[in-house]
Amino acid sequence: MTRAAEGALLTLVFTTSTALVVVMSLDLSPVARRAPLLVALPTLALLAFELLADVSRIRARSVIEEHSLRVRERALILWAGVLLASSALLGMLVGLPAFLLLYLRYRSAERWTVALAVAAGFWTLLYGVLVLVLRLPLYAGRLWSWL
C-alpha cells in the first residue's frame, strides 16, 4: 500500500465513523440528537472534500513505503499487544516491569543489567509512590485470580 493510499484510508475511516454518527443520531430524540447532528453534518461535508483530495493524491503520487518502516510498525503493534496482555494477565505491579524488561532486552537489545535496572527502578516507583504513599489500587491481573 502506498503512503497516500494509507492516508486516504484513514480519512475514509473518519468519514465512515462520522456518517455512522449521523445515521445513529436519527434514532435519538430531537433533544439528544441536536448537538451531534449540528457537529456531524458539517464535519461530514468537510471530510467528503478531504477524501476527494486524498484520492487525487493517490493518483498523483504512488510512493511505496520502504519495507523496513512497515516491519518496524508491525513490530511496534506486536509490542503494544504484549503490553496489553502482560498488564491484563499479570497486573500493573508485575506486568509493567515485566514488559519493560522484555522490551529493553529483546526490542532495544540492551544488556540484561540495564534492562533489569530499569525494570526494578520502575517497580520501585510504582510500589513506593502509588501503592505506599498514595494507596492507589492498581489492577491486580487475571492470572492470579485464575490460579
Partner: peptide, 9 residues
Amino acid sequence: QVLAPIVFA
C-alpha cells in the same frame, strides 16, 4: 529505544 518503553508503561 530506552525511553519509549518507559513512556508506554
